[in-house]
Design a protein around this nucleic acid. Sequence first.
DNA 1: TTTAAATAACTGACCGGTCAGTTAGGAATG
DNA 2: CATTCCTAACTGACCGGTCAGTTATTTAAA
Lengths: 209, 209
Amino acid sequence: MQSPRWQRRAEDRPREICAAALDVFTEKGFAAARLDEIAKRAGVSKGTLYLYFKDKEDLFRAVVRDTVAPNVGALRDAAMASELPFAAVANMFLSRFADLAQRLPVGAVAKMVIGESGNFPELAKVWHDQVAGPSIGLLAGLIEKAQAKGEVRAGDPRLHAFTLMGPMLMGVIWREILQPVGGAPLDIEALARQHSQTVLTGLLAESEQ
Amino acid sequence: MQSPRWQRRAEDRPREICAAALDVFTEKGFAAARLDEIAKRAGVSKGTLYLYFKDKEDLFRAVVRDTVAPNVGALRDAAMASELPFAAVANMFLSRFADLAQRLPVGAVAKMVIGESGNFPELAKVWHDQVAGPSIGLLAGLIEKAQAKGEVRAGDPRLHAFTLMGPMLMGVIWREILQPVGGAPLDIEALARQHSQTVLTGLLAESEQ
DNA sequence: TTTAAATAACTGACCGGTCAGTTAGGAATG
DNA sequence: CATTCCTAACTGACCGGTCAGTTATTTAAA
């Protein structure tokens, strides 16, 4: 009595397929990703993909959306505590981001969005409108308020936001792209800690300022 | 008396083809780029591509190499003046990078390397070994020296280098990926100026430190 | 027994790469 | 200076493999 050749699992399939697709899409990019490969990794035949997704593009979008969606709210929360001193908020924001980047494939999705931004402008748009834009905007807003209270030095709040977030993005990309080809390992959490300390009070030794 | 259907220009062809290929590869990525499209933009027939390049992959590598190569030395020079105070060196480094990013398609190449890093690991390796690694290493070295002289505060020099360069990378990516889909325009030079000021002496107002 | 789920064989468009043929334009000749 | 010859440079139709998407068929399970 051999086990059945396959089982009907309409509930789990979409998730499993998305997971497999995320792997392949991030490894190869959209165009070079093979549906046969995705099906194989999902433990399913190619035809099955078409039971749950209209076509390759539909699957790609589903993958990005499902992986991005959970992130959206998480960071906003970190800024709710806007009564705290700016230093504390910035600290919290950075460590929250680092935590997120540990558990979710932030780097992988970023890589996909960057790599396919030419072929899927609306995908880059989703990323901008729902992730990067709001995050930067939020930060810039916080910074502006803190400036009004005299907590943060003068300067374009948006550029300050880049100063704050840039190293984290660079860290994520380093891990995703360069670490696999021999780049020295990078501890994102350590980066978040040291960067938040450094950026707030300056890279220069106090005696030099 | 009509002008000839084509001209023999063996000297210029490779450059022209590379330029066209850079455009198409950065727009579409490697897999989605069509050789017919590249040939068309280079004002040449598809067969001509094969007179100068072995195959699509050879062309791709040539494009990346030719575009990356000129950059390699440029930044190193900025650090030669290592007798100057660290603040001056950092300033020079950042503004030099911004200048470079204005004139060369740094963002476009970065996008290509990131997007195709899965399919061309050795390309990511070239980028790491010849561009990112040395730059970070150079910066980290400078920082370490400056720390020894008491100019720069304690902390992992490499992480400090991320703090310094991250925002610039983020700026380049923002311009390349998000600005075209509605992201607010970003002035890289302004970013370099403000960031170098800010990061050296701290984001917090002096009264808060 | 019915039907929804899944498969595996199939199709056809598309595109990287080839190559037989064409042309520009310089060199040799008168 | 005109003419002929020669070949590197170039073209574009074509071929064969690949792969997204379809369909006829089989099977699990209600």
